[in-house]
Amino acid sequence: MIELSHVSKRFDEETAVDDISLRVPKGKFCALVGTSGCGKSTTLRMINRLIEHSEGEIILDGQAIEVYDPVKLRRRIGYVIQHTGLFPHWNVARNIGLVPRLLKWSATEVQARVEELMDLLGLPVGEFAHKYPHQLSGGQAQRVGVARALAADPDILLMDEPFGALDPITREKLQDELARLQARLHKTVVFVTHDMDEALKLADHLVVMREGRIVQQGSPLALLQQPADPFVESMLGGLERGLKQAALTRVKDHMTSMGPTLPAQSRIPADFSLRQALSMMLRDHSDRLAVVDQHDVPIGELSLRRIIKEAQLDKGNARE
């Protein structure tokens, strides 16, 4: 668990981070979002003591971080950065095995762990283990970066705009894989990004920052339903907010059992998002969709009127 209470960071006269408090429970994914210069990266770097905080308390697993030796602390926290920071003179396998070697694991343990991680991140060992970073594509390099961060099996993972330099298709693919990994590994993750869609997609807990302060934090749905101010609202996409919220909602949560009428012509799988359902309704000029399971057997129905009615109810609930 990571807990920051009333943490500030001043560089000379300038306050980079101003009295922020936040809590990331064990196994949760927290995203820090904001425009550049809002202090989100500084906040991240204070957690592994790359930057020392000026005021307040940062607690890691019940102990203030000042208690830990900085070098040992960093070895038990995984860290991923935008430009990977892979060592160009080391091959992929050696790069991934860095922290286990620092922790003096035996050579066979290191090798086994490296192969396990390459497997986990979809990098075939035979093909990639002996390649050098400059021979990798951006996406492959960042997979290696993530593998390196996970190598010593840390409980905590800090990620500083890890996918910011990738093309949209690769970025989305890696986001999906990170979500899949997180569902399996349950790391405590702090993830910095300026891409709200990325944050909404991955986070359990969303923290919006501006000028060193936290403007609002909560679950992605809570923020979408009740943005605290116009800044958060604009970060959440202004008029597109409804669609972003729909993207976080599964079709199966809004379907009704099949009515007496004939099933609708258009079919949508139950685990698709509401956003995809709305898009399909627009495309097919239909206010009803048949919901199907993975075998394409209809199991329910989705109607536009019902979605709108339920959205009103949700908003009412959030207000209370």
């Binding site: 602390l73 960093r74 070895r75 950065i81 160009p88 860095l98």
Partner: peptide, 25 residues
């Protein structure tokens, strides 16, 4: 600098960074 700060962030000591990263590069 990205590489040096990555070495630092991974938990390498200054001596390790010098010998394993800076001097070889």
């Amino acid at each position: 600098n990205t590489i040096k700060s990555a070495a630092h962030a991974m938990g390498m000591t200054p001596t390790q960074t010098l010998r394993q990263v800076e001097l070889p590069l």
